[in-house]
Each structure stands twice: as C-alpha cells, then as structure tokens.
Design a protein around this nucleic acid. Structure first.
Lengths: 261, 261
DNA sequence: CGGTATTTTGAGTATCGTCAAGGCCAGTGG
DNA sequence: CCACTGGCCTTGACGATACTCAAAATACCG
C-alpha cells in the first residue's frame, strides 16, 4: 500500500506549519521531520492504534478528533482522553501504549516512524523539549479529567466537560463560535462517547443536558450544539473549578458582546 | 533555617542509591545532583507545595506518601494522584503546578533547586530521559485513575483502587505482604482521602469496604488492612480491568502459597 | 421520502449522598 | 489505672440521583 503511493506528493502534503509548538525547531530538524512524515486519513470509528501493541509511529493530529480509550472485556469502553489538532500521541523510549486510539470523527494525522523519531529526539534538544512539554500538557489534561470525573453528580461532570472544551480546546477548529453575544459550543462527540468519558450512560447524559438547559445554564440548539451567554453558571455547576485560562475565554465572550452591540 | 544546618551531614544523607531510575546516570551527573540536594521531612498533613505557585524545586519521594490535590473553594478537596517512594514531582521548563502537594503520611523527600536541575537536564541526556520516562509513567497512572473513577459504582472504584495498589505500588515499603497464602494489603490513606480520590464520601467508602468483605472478596483485618486470597474477585468487581503487570503480582501470590504449604 | 442510528422520555429499582448518632482506638491527664 | 477527649470509622434512616430496560421521538443519510 505505502509503496504504491506517490510519496513526493505525500511529503509536500506534510505541512508542519500548522503546529505552533514545532515552529521553535531549527530548520534542519524540521526538514528531517518532513522527510519521514506521512499523512494518513481515517474516517469516524476507524481504529488508528490497537492497545498494547507497538504502532511503530508517533502521530500528530492535524484535523478531527481522536479518542484514547480502553476497551473492556464486556464490550464497554472507557475514554481517557480526546486528541485534537496539534496534539501529539504515541510513545517514545519505552513500552507501547496501554490504550487504543480511534477516530471519533473523520480525521487527518501525520505519522513519523518511531525509531527515526527517537533518533532525532536524541539529536535535537529542541524537539526533546517540545515532546516533554507535550507530555506535561497531557498530564495536566488527564488530571483535569480526574477532577471532572470525581464529581458525584452527572450535571457537575457535564459542566466540567463543557468548561474543558471552552478552556482547553479554545483553538480547535470550529468548536467555539461567538455570535450575537453568546458562545456557541459544539460537542464533538456522541452521547455514547460522552458517557464513556464521564463514566455514566447516554441516558443520564441526555437528562443532564436537559436539566442544565431547564435551569438556564445554556440553550440546546442541536444535540451537538449548545449556546450560552455566561460561563458563570457552568463554573458554579462544576463546583468552582477554576480552569487556568478561563480568563481568556471570558475575553472572547466580552469581545462577542461588543461585536453584537 | 537552612543556613544553620550542618550541610555536610545533610549531603551525606542525600543517598540517591534508593532511586533505581537514577542508577543509570553517569557518575558526574550524580555528583552534580548530590551537590544541590537537600533532605526534607514532613509530618502527615503538612503542606509541601501550594497550588499555582512556584515551589522552586523538584522533589523525589524517599519515604512516605504524598497526595497531589486540588483544594476547592467550598473546602472539599479532590486528589489526583498519590506519590510514593521513588516518584518524582514538580515542574520543569514551564509554569508551576496547578495542584497542591501535601503529606498523606509522615514522609521524607529530596529536593533539588529548580534552576540548577533544569540546567543539568539540558546538559545530561540521560537525566532528561529519566525525567521524560517519569512523566510518561505519571501519565499512565493518571489515566488508570481515570478508568477507576469512571466506574459507576463505588464498589468497582474501590476494587480498582486496591488493584492499583497491588499492581503499581508493589515495590512500595510495607504496603504489600504475603503470608500464609494470602496477600495483605495496607491501605495507606484515610477513608476521607480515599473518598476525595474516588469521588465520593467517606461513608460510602466504608459501606463499599464492608459490602466487598461480606461478599468474600477480602477480609478486613483493620480499617487500614485487608487480606485476600485471590485477585480474581477483585478484578471481576473492577470490571475486568487488566492492569499490565498484574501477572507479576499473581506470581507473588503463588510464591506465598508455596511458602505456606 | 424512507430507513437507520442517535437521542430522548418514561417507569421502576438500586445506589449514593446527607445528616445524625454511635463505636472504636490512641493519647492525655488526673 | 482509669476516665476523658478527639479523631476516625461505622451504622442507620431517608431523600435524591443514577442505572436499567423499554419505547418513542428526533435527527441524519442517502
């Protein structure tokens, strides 16, 4: 399959400019990266990486959303993280990942064969730094998910999830939109995925959505789109979580309000 | 306070031999580390590091258990991880940690001033590697906690917690003991901490303990000590979680059985 | 416009959170 | 040595919440 592909076209398609973290790398490292890079596309539901086997590559998400999950023997699955554009995934220097990676939406990723990538990592402290900071960021996110999951009521978890989207996934393509003084948040995964992520069932997720809507926390435009005028009720529901960069989101809201007047 | 201390004695006390991960480091790096190392002791309940402020050091746990947590405005606290002997904590190269670190038990840690540590990190690829692998390990643990938290019933979460201890904290001082063909697991934190970690209340933790005991999953010797003859019921309760190195624990059990016969 | 998957709603049961009270243990001081 | 105290764990009762199974409504896709 790979042999039949027009590799020069593929490589031209490997535009690394879309990854701000990589912009600090020296030109030489970038060309090295480009030379082993491949673009791969997946449609929603496809398996990108099986748990506990070496995929042989590290990946960068260029577009779409991936879910990292553990598939249980009884058929249920638990999601431990969402990967969005700009995120890196995969292992370096040790055993393969314990989690499977699947496409939650249609998506496009860049892959780099693991061995050459590790070699480059050893040669370039800059790349090493980028990868290290990426892991630290993932660690933060995982712990934020833990806080969200620790809420005893589903309403609180859902509120935490929405805050996670507006605060951590601010930059992600089309997830956030400000219009007429309100923020419109697109929920990029299904109720089932949301249940797998928040540790509950789809029915409870649905009820929590409508309970919050009834209380005026937001308005449900479509099952995958809610509109809200303030983040405060959401923050109150989530139990006074202070996401670190919620401030920047508030700026967005104010900007939207000014634009609306 | 620091100026009054007999620093040569302190430095002799900085025995890095207790950290297997560090044994791969070149002699030169080890001496560098030793030279900036300080030993600090804390008693249970003491605050080691406040959230969102730069502690100015990275730490290694030599003894005892630390909890990493977020303190909520309403007084509740959510635990996002436990640090045990051999674990490293603290940030490098970026903003301070979002979480507070407190002593869950009396403990002893080694601290290294952050700036010199970062400088050494830049000079030594070996140390860099050690730190990177540490973060990867923490990431794995955080995701395992997520899986545990995602259980809808407290029984399942508690079972997951016990499996976490048995599989991930195997090496930790006195937590695990095999005797007369059974494993005795010491629960190193209070019911309240356990509730903060598993996202519930102490009462529910207590009930879950006794419910599992009534079903023969284990026997409660003391509030902080349970004895069990097989991990299978525990694994069944936790929903077929397959902790990666549960195999090695099973070896321990078999060994204990042989010794008992 | 029809067929399918997803989301929502409903009713009954199980589990959990809450508040309050009781028990156990260790340390303290008489 | 014993009574007292305070912290932690346990138990009980009740209301709130979530899970389960089933069915209906809605959205999505061709």
């Amino acid at each position: 399959m790979a042999g039949a592909e027009p590799t020069d076209v593929l490589r031209r398609a490997c535009n690394l400019a879309g990854f701000p973290q990589l912009s600090v790398l020296p030109e030489e490292v970038l060309t090295d990266l480009q030379s082993s890079c491949r673009v791969r596309k997946f449609t929603a539901g496809e398996i990108i990486h099986h748990a506990q086997e070496d995929s042989g590559f590290v990946g960068f998400v260029r577009d779409g959303i991936l879910r990292m999950q553990k598939n249980m023997l009884d058929g249920r699955q638990h999601i431990v993280g969402l990967l969005v554009e700009g995120d890196m995934f995969g292992r370096v220097f040790d055993s393969p990942d314990d989690f499977a990676i699947e496409a939650a939406t249609d998506c496009e990723i860049l892959t780099f064969p693991r061995r050459p990538f590790e070699a480059l990592l050893a040669r370039s402290p800059e790349l090493d730094r980028v990868v290290m900071l990426n892991f630290l960021n993932e660690l933060d996110r995982a712990r934020d998910w833990m806080i969200i999951l620790a809420h005893s009521k589903i309403r609180g978890r859902l509120a935490g999830f929405l805050l996670m989207i507006v605060s951590r996934f601010t930059e992600v393509d089309h997830l956030l939109e400000t219009k007429n003084g309100e923020i419109r948040v697109r929920i990029p995964i299904s109720r089932t995925d949301l249940a797998d992520l928040l540790g509950t069932r789809p029915e409870s997720i649905s009820r929590a959505f409508h309970a919050l809507a009834d209380d005026g926390v937001f308005r449900i435009e479509r099952p995958d789109l809610v509109a809200l005028t303030s983040l405060d009720p959401l923050a109150a529901e989530s139990g006074e979580l202070d996401f670190d960069d919620i401030g920047s989101v508030l700026e967005i809201v104010r900007g939207a309000r000014r634009a609306a007047v």
